[in-house]
Structure formats: structure tokens, C-alpha cells
Design a protein around this nucleic acid. Structure first.
Lengths: 240, 240
DNA sequence: AGGAATTTGTGCGTATGTATC
DNA sequence: AGATACATACGCACAAATTCC
């Protein structure tokens, strides 16, 4: 009844998964690298193979690892091909469409607004990179996107040296990558720059996505907002 | 290379989970009922306990079962309390809010539009129930909702005998329940009836959700669209 | 091409821990 | 306090996929 603090320690497989998570975040193994075999890891950590496998399952569900039967267990890296767009949720009205992004501007700015979005009682003196991009599905411009991340991640940043997938850029240049996001979807009057990019009248009410993205280091590393043209695309979510 | 049809049968635990899925859908155990113990089930089906547990894990992840340590494994039913709103994705702008629904109208109609949404090369003579409701979060009206489902599920249907949670109504009267949904989110000019309910000018562009809902029998049993006021609420999705 | 070695996936059985009744 | 039921943990054997020679 009186339910005092549970002193019971966490299950062993949880302890193991958290240990491995820390080691991966610390760079013990880098993205793409293969981990030791299950039996080897189990032996090193002095746990049963079944216990280790359950720990790996947790990390796999968290998107941190990828297991291939007959091959090994690998630290996951954002794939090179089409699956770069893991978290891209816009689709053409008749479904699908290949995403592309064209960067419009890159700037290092102070913004208390964004600082608040990052939590951490936003320091108004902090600087953030602001990227503005035009999004395409196939050949159709469908959305204007504004992305913010911590100014300390890069000294210099220009349109030329940005990978088309920002998430790939993060991994290759900043040594972290995104594991999950929270989206809030609504509609808003779009700012002038977005209307111009999308070639709509000013002002126009467009679909609007506000996103926070969590990286494998556990922090929120990106905040973005996207205005999309409802005549061209929709936001799609599958829930269970 | 030439990759012919893989004749390898499915893993045993998948077979078991599909067997149990069929039996539950067939009413062998009804929502809320407790299944036999793991060791009993394993014995009945002549598989190891570990294998059975893996099968139950699949069904649990599919939202069909609920396991309680020390108590048993239960067929999940839409809970009575706040979690009735399992698939409700609207939140107040500052987060959260308790959902309520007030039914405005109930009608049995033909609709080729809706028939198409249900797939199945919609028969234009089929009839569908159309429910229109006003949605609240706390005391604030936030959305107008239009729901369609197969006309054969009920002979009669009136505002009075509808449960506030339609999904509970489905379970208690129609003997199925929803396991997952697909939402498409965008914005649209709202129809007149929706604007009147939400007390906005006519016409107004509002947030718009188009949903298909799958039941535990594997079929799409509901199609709905919702217009929400972006000044009051937002659609929220968490993705990984 | 093909077989051996390696590595993860599946399945079984048992013992013990923990929550519930 | 005791019985019951799910959760965790261990260990082993074999299957399936991949890799290496």
C-alpha cells in the first residue's frame, strides 16, 4: 500500500542496454561499425546470451542498432539511399513523391524565441544557425522549411557545403544523428518569405508543422517549422 | 539470385500469434477476459513457454492483449477512463486538455464518396451512417467531426443511445474495436455546418484530418474527417 | 561454384524474482 | 502468509543467412 521508493534495481537487460547506449554515444563504436558478436559481448559483460540479446532488442527498437542475421550487429547510420527521409512526413495528394530540398539561405543568428523552443531556459545571447529551404516532392515545390540548431556545432556554414539531407550532414560533420521527433501540425498564415518561395499570394494560410528532433545523445538538437501547400501535399501519420 | 518463392514456413511464434489473433477475433475470448496462463496455453498448443511468450509479445505490441504481472494476460478492451481517447491527437495550444464529444446529427445515407474511401470499389447503393459531432478540449470547442461507417452495423441509431466515445460504442454494440489508424493532416476550407458549430466566419480555412481506422477484424470500419480550429488546438504526433 | 566457418534467429527447458490476489 | 501468474535470467541445440576461402 504505502508504496515507498522501490529499491529494486533495474533489470539486468536494461542495465546492459543503457551501458551499451552510453558507449555508443561516447564513440566506442562509430556509425556503421560492427559490434562484437553476441556471444563475445555476453562473455565480456558476464551475462547470458539471452539477456544480452534482449538488451540489443531494446536498442534496436530505439533505432540505435541494426542486426543482420548471419552478418552481425551494427551501429545504425542514416542510410545513403531513399531512406534518408526517415522522418519526412509529407506526401503528394495522390500519395508518395520523392523528396528533395534546395537551400535558400544560411545564417547565424540570436533568437530568444528559438532558445525557448530548445528548453534549457533559453539564453538570449546564444546563437543559432537558421537554414531556410524549399522542399520538393518529385518536381513539385510543396513546402518552405526553417530549421534551427545550436550555433556551436559549426564555425562556418554555407549553402555549398550542406548535404541535401541535413540529417546526413549532422552525422558526418557533427557526430550525432536523429532518433525520434515530435510534430505539431496545424495551419497558419505563412511568413512572406515562405509565400514567395511557394509562389502563393501574401498572406496565405498554409499547413504548418512544428518539430522538435531528439538526437542519439539524448538532447533536442534541432527545432524546425515547415509551411506546406495543402493543394500539393499532406502530412501523413500512421498510429497504433 | 533467382529468388524463387520462399517455401520456408513462418517461425513458430508467428504461427502461434496468428492463431491466437484469429481465435480472439472469433470471440473465443471476449474483451476484458483473461487468457489461460502462459504455461497452460503453451501446454495446450504444444510449444515451449518462451515461444508462447514471444507470440504474446507480438499481440501485445499490436494492441490486442494486455499483460499484468502476477495477474494474467487479458484481451484488451477500450478502457473506460481517460484512455478511451487512445487515438485522439488534438491538444490545446499549451498542451493537453480533456476531450469531450457532443453529437449533432445522425443519419443513414448513401455516399459514393465515402464508399470509395472504404476501398472495395465502393458500391454506390450501399448505405452508411454519418455522425456529426462537436469536439471539446476541457470547455473549449475545438473541432467539428464527421464520421462514416457501414450502414449494416445498426438498424436504428439516435443521438441518445450513442456513447460519447464512438469506439466504445463499436465494441459494445458492434463487437469490434479499433487497433490502428492512418491520418492525413492538412488544411481546407471548412463546410458551412462545421463553421457554424465552431462559430467561425463562413468560409474559413481550418486544420483538417482525414482518417481511416482499422478494426481488430482486419477491416477498415470507419472513415472520418475533422476540421479543427488552429487558434484553439493542434494535431500532435510522436515518431521514431 | 561450393562448402566451411561465422553470426544472428528460433525454440526448448529450467530456475528464480516480483507483483497480484 | 501462501498460492498463482507473469518477468527475468541462464544455458543449450539447431536453423537460416551471410561471409570467407
Amino acid at each position: 500500500m504505502s508504496s515507498s521508493k522501490k529499491k529494486t534495481r533495474l533489470p539486468l537487460y536494461v542495465q546492459v542496454s543503457e551501458l551499451l547506449h552510453r558507449e555508443i554515444a561516447a564513440g566506442q563504436w562509430v556509425p556503421g561499425e560492427r559490434l562484437p558478436t553476441e556471444s563475445q559481448l555476453a562473455q565480456d559483460l558476464d551475462v547470458a546470451v539471452g539477456t544480452l540479446r534482449k538488451a540489443l532488442t531494446v536498442l534496436e527498437e530505439d533505432g540505435l542498432l541494426e542486426r543482420r542475421q548471419g552478418s552481425g550487429t551494427y551501429v545504425r547510420k542514416p542510410p545513403e539511399g531513399g531512406a534518408v527521409y526517415q522522418f519526412f512526413r509529407l506526401e503528394l495528394l495522390n500519395g508518395g513523391g520523392m523528396p528533395r530540398a534546395v537551400t535558400q539561405s544560411v545564417a547565424l543568428l540570436k533568437s530568444t524565441d528559438v532558445a525557448k523552443q530548445f528548453g534549457k531556459a533559453g539564453n538570449p545571447d546564444k546563437q543559432y544557425w537558421r537554414i531556410r529551404r524549399l522542399r520538393y516532392l518529385n518536381q513539385t515545390p510543396v513546402a518552405a522549411e526553417e530549421i534551427w540548431f545550436d550555433g556551436r556545432h559549426a564555425e562556418q556554414l554555407s549553402v555549398e557545403d550542406m548535404h541535401e539531407s541535413l540529417y546526413v550532414h549532422y552525422r558526418e560533420e557533427f557526430d550525432f544523428w536523429m532518433t525520434h521527433v515530435t510534430d505539431e501540425v496545424s495551419c497558419q498564415e505563412a511568413p512572406e518569405w515562405a509565400c514567395q518561395l511557394l509562389n502563393t499570394p501574401v498572406p496565405t494560410t498554409l499547413g504548418w508543422i512544428s518539430r522538435q528532433a531528439w538526437a542519439n545523445n539524448g538532447r533536442i538538437e534541432e527545432y524546425s517549422q515547415t509551411w506546406f501547400d495543402p493543394l500539393q501535399s499532406r502530412y501523413v501519420a500512421r498510429l497504433s
